[in-house]
Amino acid sequence: MALNDGDLAAHLADQAGRILLMVRASGMFGGKALGKAGDQTANQFLCHALREQRAEDGLLSEEEKDNPERLALQRVWIVDPVDGTREYGEERADWAVHVGLAVDGVPALGAVALPGLGEVLRSDQPGEVPPAPDRLRMVVSRTRPAREATEIAEKLGAELVPMGSAGAKAMAILRGEADIYLHSGGQYEWDSCAPVAVALGWGLHASRIDGSPLVYNQQDVYMPDLLICRKEHAKRVLAEVAALQ
């Protein structure tokens, strides 16, 4: 199957999501075993497919042993087979599958599947982001909201919207369910590469919380923080973050 990068990313994210739903519906796994089975099964599919379809590119996956050879490559696929394992296991809808492509460290292309909602959002087919309401909404972790996020939300008079995975939070802005995603608790490259690519493709702002660019395919894949929001809100949010430092 000859697919361009955008179609490949979307197809893989969608198919991995379908596989995950089948694993869950099988009734063979429960609790942590379900999350492990889903992660490993979706990861095998994504990694085998990318090595078959894009053999010359690098690959970085949360569930795969890192290969440092990727650091010398221009193009590296960065995937998260299940972003939000807890939510997946609890049969919630706020989990995602990430398939992103970094080119020279830039999140150039991505697809985020929301299998619980039957939707795939992609960077190369942007839609129109619904307008923000008068009172802004900030998505935060439903289990451990970051201090900076809650303090900034208070300064902005924004409503807190608890939600599961990073991908679900980022896509909530595109879907018109939220306006700001500010995260300062630390993540990894696979948590944000595809969501950031999609957000940028849809015309949103995406950066570190000090305003500097997000750079991928690094030796250390830890990423301390992230801001995704509408461009018209970015300046004020970044200024409020700077005032907290």
Results as ranks from 00 to 15, higher is better:
Met1Gly: 15
Leu3Asp: 06
Asp5Ala: 13
Ala10Val: 00
His11Ser: 13
Ala13Lys: 02
Asp14Asn: 12
Asp14Pro: 01
Arg18Gln: 14
Arg24Ile: 01
Arg24Met: 04
Ala25Arg: 12
Ala25Thr: 03
Phe29Lys: 05
Gly30Glu: 14
Gly31Leu: 04
Gly35Pro: 09
Gly35Ala: 10
Gly38Lys: 03
Thr41Pro: 03
Phe45His: 10
Arg51Ser: 11
Gln53His: 15
Ala55His: 14
Glu56Ala: 15
Leu59His: 08
Leu59Asn: 13
Leu59Phe: 11
Ser61Leu: 07
Glu62Ala: 05
Glu63Asp: 09
Asp66Val: 12
Asn67Gly: 10
Asn67Lys: 13
Glu69Gly: 15
Glu69Phe: 05
Leu71Ile: 10
Ala72His: 12
Leu73Pro: 07
Arg75Asp: 14
Trp77Leu: 09
Val79Gly: 03
Val82Arg: 01
Arg86Lys: 13
Glu87Thr: 12
Glu90Gly: 01
Glu91Leu: 10
Glu91Met: 13
Asp94Tyr: 04
Trp95Ala: 06
Trp95Met: 03
Val97Cys: 07
His98Asp: 07
Val99Ser: 10
Gly100Phe: 11
Leu101Ile: 11
Ala102Asp: 12
Ala102Pro: 06
Asp104Ala: 15
Asp104Phe: 03
Val106Pro: 02
Ala111Trp: 01
Ala113Gln: 05
Gly118Gln: 06
Arg122Phe: 00
Gln125Lys: 11
Gly127Trp: 05
Glu128Trp: 05
Glu128Pro: 08
Val129Ala: 07
Val129Arg: 06
Pro130Ala: 10
Pro131Phe: 07
Pro131Tyr: 02
Ala132Ser: 15
Asp134Thr: 14
Leu136Val: 10
Arg137Lys: 13
Ser141Val: 04
Ser141Gly: 09
Glu151Gly: 03
Glu154Leu: 14
Lys155Pro: 04
Val161Asp: 03
Gly164Trp: 06
Ala166Tyr: 09
Ala168Arg: 00
Ile173Cys: 08
Gly176Glu: 02
Ala178Val: 08
Ala178Pro: 05
Ala178Ser: 14
Ser184Thr: 15
Gly185Tyr: 08
Gly185Cys: 10
Gln187Thr: 13
Tyr188Phe: 14
Trp190Val: 09
Cys193Asp: 13
Ala194Cys: 09
Pro195Tyr: 00
Gly203Gln: 12
His205Arg: 10
Arg208Met: 08
Tyr216Asn: 04
Tyr222His: 15
Pro224Ile: 01
Asp225Arg: 02
Cys229Ser: 13
Lys231Gly: 06
Glu232Ile: 04
Ala234Ile: 13
Lys235Glu: 15
Lys235Pro: 06
Leu244Cys: 05
Gln245His: 15
